[in-house]
Computed example of a mutant assay.
Amino acid sequence: MKTLRIKSNAFNDGMWIPVKYSARGEDLSPDFEISGIAPNAKSIAITFDDASHPIFPNYNHWVIWNIPIREIIPEGIPSGKFVDSLGGAVQGVAYGRNRYKGPKPPLKSIHTYVFTVYILDSKLDLAASCRKRDLIANINGHILQEATLSGKFQSRR
C-alpha cells in the first residue's frame, strides 16, 4: 500500500502556522493536499489538536468526519454541523463547536499543533454532538491509513 502524505499550501510540516489560520487572525482552516490514498477508501476524518497544552494534553480544536474521498480539501471550511461543500461532512464538538478553531495559546508561549488525517474504509454514523473520543472509538478497526501535519504557533498580541 502507498504511504499516505498530507501537506498544505498554508505552511510546511513543523513550521509556523500563519496568523490567518489562528484564532488571533481570520480563524480559517488551512487547505490540505492528500496523496497516496488507498483505493478501497470510503471517507476521510480529520482531527486538530494542541499537542503542547499544559493542562489538557492534545487538547482538541477541531474534529470532522465523513469527508468524501478527495485529494484536495480547501481552506476555510465553513462552520456548522454539516458541510454541504464537502458532501455533507460532519463537524463535531471540540474547542471549535461544530467548526474549526485555530491556535490561540497564551501570550508569548509557543505551542505545537497537529492535524491528523484518517483514511477510513467506511462512513460513520455519528451525531454532530460527538467529540474526538467518540470519533476515535468508532474508527478503531476502520483506519486504512493515517498521516499527520504539525505546525507551531506563538501568540504575539
Rank of each mutant, 00 (worst) to 15 (best):
G92T: 08
S85G: 04
S85A: 06
T47V: 13
V93W: 01
S85L: 13
P106G: 01
I77N: 02
I37H: 08
F56P: 01
E75V: 03
P54R: 13
W65A: 04
N58V: 02
Y59C: 06
R99C: 06
A89I: 03
F56C: 07
R97D: 14
V90K: 00
A38M: 09
Y95K: 12
N40Q: 12
Y100F: 12
G80P: 13
I55L: 13
E75D: 14
P39V: 12
D84R: 15
V63A: 08
T47F: 03
D84K: 15
A38F: 12
G87P: 10
G87M: 14
P103Y: 00
P106K: 03
W65I: 07
A94H: 03
G87C: 08
A38E: 14
I77Y: 00
F82Y: 15
P106N: 05
H61D: 05
V90L: 04
V90Y: 05
I46W: 00
P54I: 14
P57A: 09
I44A: 03
P39A: 13
P105E: 10
G92M: 10
I46S: 00
S52C: 01
N60R: 06
W65R: 01
S52R: 00
H61N: 12
V83A: 02
I69K: 06
G88F: 13
K81T: 09
N60C: 15
Y100D: 04
I72T: 07
I73K: 07
Y59W: 15
N40W: 02
K81M: 11
R70G: 04
Q91V: 04
I55K: 14
V83G: 03
F48M: 08
I46K: 00
Y59G: 00
A41R: 11
F48T: 03
A38Y: 09
H53D: 15
G76T: 12
E75L: 14
Q91R: 03
V93D: 04
P103V: 03
N58P: 01
Y59F: 14
P78M: 11
P74E: 10
I69H: 11
K104P: 02
H61Q: 10
N40F: 09
G96A: 00
V63D: 08
N98Y: 08
R70M: 11
D50G: 05
G76A: 10
